[in-house]
């Protein structure tokens, strides 16, 4: 009996610990349940339903007809889809590089001390915090071919062009304007992230480099850049995700730039309203993005 008592006590303690762990697990589940329900109903369910819908010829009236992978075949054999993919890549790559480089440049200037720095820092954030619709209207007014200030200055006053033109409306220029608009609107985010990292870099490294006679470029290359590597890496991945799915900036500014999200909208909700193909397009866009993220996280961020 004397031998068995500690064993019994041990068993009881194990059982108690086990019960406690189960209780904690239950409590944990209770805590995350609201999030699971919200994510499940607002994200997982639509994705699954979208997958399901992409296998049908969707009828706005009456029953949908199962057509297997036909929607995917139709999408992939449509030259305008590949054109949209190309436009999306041009848009995403240009805007990501542009916002990151300008954000980096502005942050490197803003980290220095100069009069009214606080005011300038606040002003830089304006494009990012202003509502997109008001900013778009300002741009449309600015570039209006007949009454806009851009034409007034460049054509009427400076005679830089031989005729007036519609910079935003013209399909030839529209993608460039959409890229410039996004860079202008989004660079403050990159600037803010990079600036906060720059401010936390220890100055002793720079002091040591100066004693060693390092140039400004060498200080940036060997001290600043390694410190910023993961911040810039995160900015790039976030910007790619956001701009790959970007709809409102592009669509409101000009409906001529058919990036994938705008192209999917036109396919699903205008013209012949092919919602089956719209669903297939959304899934293809999703897969392209997931593929990029997996590659990027493994190769660039090395997580």
């Amino acid at each position: 009996m004397a031998v068995k008592a500690p064993a019994l006590r041990g068993n009881r303690m194990i059982a108690k610990a086990h019960a406690l762990r189960i209780e904690e697990e239950r409590f944990g589940w209770k805590l995350i349940l609201p999030s699971v329900i919200i994510i499940g109903s607002l994200i997982i369910y639509p994705i699954i339903y979208n997958m399901y819908l992409s296998l049908f010829d969707v009828k706005l009236q009456g029953a949908n007809i199962y057509i297997g992978l036909q929607n995917y075949k139709n999408v992939l054999s449509d030259p305008s889809f590949w054109h949209a993919v190309l436009t999306t890549f041009i848009y995403v790559i240009s805007t990501t590089i542009g916002t990151t480089l300008i954000g980096l440049g502005v942050a490197l200037v803003m980290v220095k001390n100069f009069p009214f720095r606080g005011l300038v820092r606040a002003l830089i954030l304006l494009p990012y915090i202003a509502p997109v619709i008001s900013v778009v209207f300002s741009w449309q007014f600015f570039f209006d071919p007949v009454n806009g200030l851009f034409m007034h200055v460049t054509y009427d006053m400076l005679h830089l062009f031989d005729k007036r033109f519609n910079l935003i409306g013209s399909p030839q220029n529209a993608v460039i304007v959409a890229i410039i608009f996004n860079i202008w609107r989004s660079f403050p985010f990159s600037y803010l992230m990079i600036l906060s990292r720059l401010q936390s870099i220890d100055s002793s490294g720079y002091e040591a480099a100066e004693i060693d006679g390092a140039s400004s470029w060498q200080k940036f290359r060997y001290i600043t850049f390694p410190e910023l590597y993961f911040v810039i890496g995160s900015i790039v991945i976030l910007r790619v995700i956001w701009n790959f799915n970007k709809f409102e900036d592009v669509y409101l500014l000009t409906d001529n730039v058919k990036v994938l999200s705008v192209y999917t909208y036109f396919k699903a909700f205008t013209g012949v309203m092919d919602q089956g193909q719209g669903a297939a397009l959304a899934l293809i866009q999703f897969l392209l993005l997931i593929g990029f993220i997996l590659f990027y996280v493994k190769k660039v961020l090395k997580w």
Partner: peptide
């Protein structure tokens, strides 16, 4: 037409005598 794609809103140019 006035430059670029136009819709009904460009009637403003008539009211502006352009």
């Amino acid at each position: 037409n006035p430059p670029g794609p136009q819709t009904w809103r460009a009637r403003d140019y008539y009211i502006q005598q352009k």
